[in-house]
């Protein structure tokens, strides 16, 4: 058996149908993670009594353990809880009705939430305090000041880290194969084992991931250029 380049193309074509699943997992986990992360970051910045301590331990624990353990814990732990509740309240909904990809969504959202909380927090802290004070002094309310002054600047500061997290979650979505979701990695495994050509199949998968990653980075670079317009020097 040698390296078969024509099979590389076949494998590439056969992997294409699995791309949406990878993108769904990435998009859902980053979106939900962003919401979780914003809540955690704000409660930590404004030192909300109970929430901020909870948020700190959540972030520390999730960032200190591998993403795979979160997925395994949710996959095996959530059904126990759901079935217990279902038996207690007589729901017709139980763990069997959760689709496999649901476990990936939930656990990766929790993972992304912790990482994004740090990204958002460092973005917010990067904005000079004087900006908020200046907004207050011209009569804006705190909500207005945050929305019009702080958030746009914080977003610009956090953008590189945001794109890093997005790429991290894209790469992390390969773990979903452990809960039998057919995304690119699982599809590569299927293509590889049915044709007994492992190297070519995984090479095709790697090329797809490489491509998506570079696309994300180019898009971020464009966005960054646009968003930092306010930050230029000069007079015009």
């Amino acid at each position: 058996m040698t390296v078969d380049l024509s099979f590389l193309w076949t494998a590439f074509v056969q992997l294409l149908p699995a791309i949406p699943n990878t993108l769904y997992i990435t998009a859902v986990s980053v979106t939900c993670g962003f919401i979780i992360g914003t809540i955690v970051a704000l409660s930590r910045i404004y030192k909300v009594p109970v929430l901020s301590q909870l948020g700190t331990s959540y972030v520390t624990f999730i960032r200190g353990t591998p993403m795979l353990t979160h997925l395994l814990l949710i996959y095996f732990g959530l059904p126990l809880i759901v079935d217990d509740l279902a038996a207690k309240f007589g729901w017709s909904f139980n763990s069997v009705s959760i689709p496999m990809i649901g476990f990936a969504y939930i656990s990766f959202s929790i993972t992304a939430g912790a990482y994004l909380a740090e990204v958002i927090r460092s973005g917010m802290l990067a904005v000079n305090r004087g900006q908020l004070e200046a907004a207050h002094s011209i009569g804006m309310t705190t909500i207005q000041a945050l929305r019009r002054i702080v958030v746009p600047q914080a977003f610009a500061a956090a953008l590189p880290n945001l794109s890093n997290s997005l790429i991290g979650m894209l790469h992390g979505s390969t773990l979903a194969f452990t809960v039998s979701v057919v995304e690119i990695n699982a599809q590569a495994e299927i293509v590889a084992s049915t044709n007994w050509k492992y190297f070519e199949a995984y090479l095709a998968a790697a090329i797809i991931f490489w491509g998506i990653t570079i696309l994300i980075e180019k898009a971020t670079a464009l966005l960054e250029k646009r968003i930092n317009v306010y930050n230029r020097g000069g007079v015009a």
Binding site: I167, H171, G172, N185, A192, Y202, A206
Partner: peptide, 26 residues
């Protein structure tokens, strides 16, 4: 650097585990 930062580590594991013996066989 671009390849190894742009692809998931899981794919790299499989790629090296299955691919390296093939290449070395050549």
């Amino acid at each position: 650097a671009s390849f190894f930062r742009g692809t998931p580590i899981l794919i790299q594991l499989f790629l090296i585990y299955y691919g390296l013996p093939e290449i070395l066989k050549l």
